[in-house]
């Protein structure tokens, strides 16, 4: 196969409950950069129930949106998605395929790659085009100690990117493009049945603007009530390092780091968190990192913008007081 046979950048536009996930807009932003280098079109593949505002993908830079409409896409069924995506990819023959590394994307993309007998690079933090027009995929490895530059020797070249890794393409309502509505080419089978949605996630830590997180130094579960007060005061949410999840103070949806959520808040406040590399991996995209820790040699201070050496049980109540006072003064 030659490169010429494959043209265009294909973005999998993930939707949930008829809402397009914002990681799709982040992928479109990167796709636009790559397409400018390669001088090629951008396709967005939207698989979902009827009634999704597919034009939003045009306003975010897609030239053509392939909208496969079927109620069955309202269920996260990887096999059904895979079969239909593979047919669409075979028809379009894109040179690059980008998928958001959400829990669903991370489960779906490997199936698609295997079905196409092509390579897949997980969790890329940067994507570039080299002089030969090949996609260079950069991903961290070994707890973020190194960055590996990876190339794919087959086509299409596939990569997943974590949510919040890239900035999203700004919406431009004047952009034009084409929406091609299609019916699924394959039907859903019953090898996996999605029985029911048990519970909706309580918090969405990945999208919070302020995150106040606790680690080992918090010592008791009740300490999170204090963190919650500060978080509420600042319009944010609480989070935790892995130690806290392991002892069961909070559930996994609060976990920040390598094996938890990667976050990109405007303010991140680390309370009693030592700052293991596995934790730092999840917070490096934060605009401002504030660390509170009794141990002045804690590694968290090396990555923090502001560090307070002190006991969180003394510092945080005073911080809450100060913020409340400032707000009263401003009003």
């Amino acid at each position: 196969m030659t490169e010429k046979e494959y043209n265009g950048i294909f973005v999998f536009a993930e939707q949930r409950g008829g809402e397009i996930h914002h990681v799709s807009y982040e992928l479109l932003n990167k796709a636009e950069e790559l397409a400018a280098e390669l001088n090629c079109p951008i396709f967005a593949a939207l698989l979902g129930p009827t009634g999704i505002k597919a034009e939003e993908l045009i306003y975010r830079g897609a030239n053509k949106v392939y909208y496969l409409e079927d109620q069955a896409f309202g269920q996260p069924d990887e096999l059904f998605y895979k079969e239909n995506l593979v047919d669409l990819i075979d028809e379009l023959k894109p040179e690059i395929i980008l998928v958001g590394a959400t829990n669903f994307g991370r489960s779906l993309a490997p199936r698609v790659a295997a079905a196409l007998d092509t390579g897949l690079t997980a969790d890329c933090t940067e994507l570039r085009v080299d002089q030969a027009g090949k996609l260079l995929q950069i991903r961290p490895a070994f707890s973020e100690n190194i960055l590996a530059q990876i190339e794919t020797v087959t086509y299409p070249q596939m990569a997943t990117v974590r949510y919040k890794e890239f900035v999203e393409r700004k919406r431009d309502g004047t952009l034009e493009g084409e929406i091609i509505k299609k019916r699924p080419t394959k039907v859903q089978d019953q090898s996996v049945e999605i029985l029911e949605l048990l519970e909706q996630q309580e918090i969405n830590i990945a999208e919070a603007e302020v995150v106040v997180a606790g680690g080992k130094g918090i010592k008791k579960a009740a300490g999170f009530e204090l963190l919650q007060r500060l978080a509420t005061e600042l319009g944010g949410v609480i989070g935790a390092s892995r130690d806290i999840i392991d002892v069961g103070y909070l559930s996994k949806e609060y976990q920040i780091g390598y094996s938890g959520y990667r976050i990109a808040p405007k303010i991140y406040i680390a309370c009693g968190i030592s700052g293991a590399p596995q934790h730092v991996a999840g917070i490096k995209e934060a605009d401002k990192i504030i660390a509170i820790n009794t141990d002045p040699s804690a590694p968290i201070f090396e990555v923090a913008d502001y560090g307070i050496v002190g006991d969180l049980y003394q510092v945080i109540p005073r911080l809450i007081e100060e913020v409340e006072e400032d707000e009263r003064r401003d009003n």
Partner: peptide
């Protein structure tokens, strides 16, 4: 039948 997190929630799923 298992529980697995997908999208924004926990789903009960059955695999034959």
């Amino acid at each position: 039948t298992v529980v697995a997190p997908t999208w924004d929630g926990n789903y009960s799923k059955k695999i034959n």
